[in-house]
Design a protein around this nucleic acid. Structure first.
Lengths: 224, 224
DNA sequence: TCAAAAGTGTTAAGTTTACACCCATGA
DNA sequence: TCATGGGTGTAAACTTAACACTTTTGA
């Protein structure tokens, strides 16, 4: 019946490193596991690949299961395939990272999954090899964010330049000079000033900007 | 018996994009398939993940099966997981790329597998999604080669600066200014001049250099 | 003696970094 | 009125890019 009937078959899981940006810091959406194995420990959101879905679709499904969100920026991090990485039984795990706007997620779903946002610089220890997955994901994000405008996925539709700067400082893990940063922003026409003012961050108020994907596509040069 | 007994299991293949460098051009080691499905067509070297090996080990095993080589530079490209990507049956494929010294491989094994080196700019069309795999691998190589000294894996132990330059021109797909290139090389102490001379490339002869990994590790800054 | 590849420095242009003060507002 | 974050320009340092001729040697 099968061309490959003599070959082994494997459980394939998806694990999601879900990044958010909140109070000037990167956070991850983590679960406190309700089930064995490793009940009570923290882990990434995960799930198993199913017969009739592509791996990318599985990642989307699993992200949606926890956050309620669709059309989220996601990228592959790597396939974790050590034989004994899961002490229960052999499971391969394809890791993705996702960038979400932290105000958008479905709080009820998150509560149901016993999940919460954890500041990335104060992570608890995680089950299995999830610590490594996070480190690798963070690294990929950093590299990606340098040359492609993916950071906007972590901000609300409209944002101040100070928010944008603190986001990039959090991603890069180092401070950025304000005037140099704004000079670079000014050169990117696809970061558009709106006529809206944000009065939350300061008394004076700060101009709100937005990312214009159409303009970006015409001349896709990005560097922050 | 199993924690995960209600989950689906999958065939997992490894496909290898094997790069070599020959006569100033990048080449790929490709197979003309002897078996169904897609008999007679060109494909990447592949194989199936086995129960008792990690995914990385499987990649090494499969590479060795074709080339006889061990300790080869390999990196993950991505997991290809579309449901119908293999018309025979559902198979996930984890793609790796490998960089080998083109003079080192085992010619007998390669012949047995019905494989040959194909200039990367004259590729035949490949089965399934292998074309995409190659494109993605090439891209990853390009990015990697910019900031890490992986190119030396494609050259013999000792090489001339002209060989090094043509290699990087092939990887980047654009010409490089000779004097600027040599200036950059001169600043990297881990690219060491030997007292050997290569007389193959020219009548005058060119100095042979080698990459010193120990010196590189002390101050790992690379840019070509 | 000449064809073919090896080897070698300088200058201009562009990019990146460092740096400090005034502004507007609400409390 | 003052504390807080918002907003603005210039000069020096550094990096990158452009460019052409001399050397050596085997055929």
């Amino acid at each position: 019946m099968s061309f490959y009937s003599d070959k082994d078959r494997f459980f394939v899981a998806i694990d999601c490193v879900i990044f958010g940006f909140h109070e000037d810091e990167l956070s991850l959406l983590l679960l406190k596991r309700k089930f064995e194995p490793a009940q009570g420990m923290w882990s990434l959101m995960g799930g198993f690949l199913q017969k009739e879905e592509s791996v990318n679709d599985a990642a989307k499904r699993i992200l949606k299961e926890l956050t309620g969100l669709e059309n989220v920026f996601m990228e592959q991090v790597g396939l974790y395939g050590e034989v004994y990485r899961d002490p229960g039984e052999r499971v391969l795990s394809q890791v993705y990272y996702a960038l979400i706007k932290i105000d958008d997620y479905d709080r009820q779903l998150v509560a149901q999954h016993n999940a919460s946002w954890v500041n990335i610089s104060k992570l608890p220890s995680l089950i299995f090899d999830h610590q490594n997955m996070v480190a690798e994901a963070r690294n990929k994000l950093k590299i990606k964010a340098t040359t492609e405008p993916v950071g906007f996925n972590l901000l609300p539709e409209m944002f101040t330049l100070t928010q944008l700067q603190t986001l990039y400082e959090a991603i890069y893990g180092e401070p950025i000079d304000k005037r140099n940063f704004r000079k670079r922003v000014a050169e990117m026409d696809f970061i558009e000033k709106t006529d809206k003012i944000d009065k939350n961050g300061s008394k004076r108020g700060a101009c709100l900007y937005k990312f214009n994907a159409k303009i970006y596509k015409k001349d896709p040069k990005f560097k922050l």
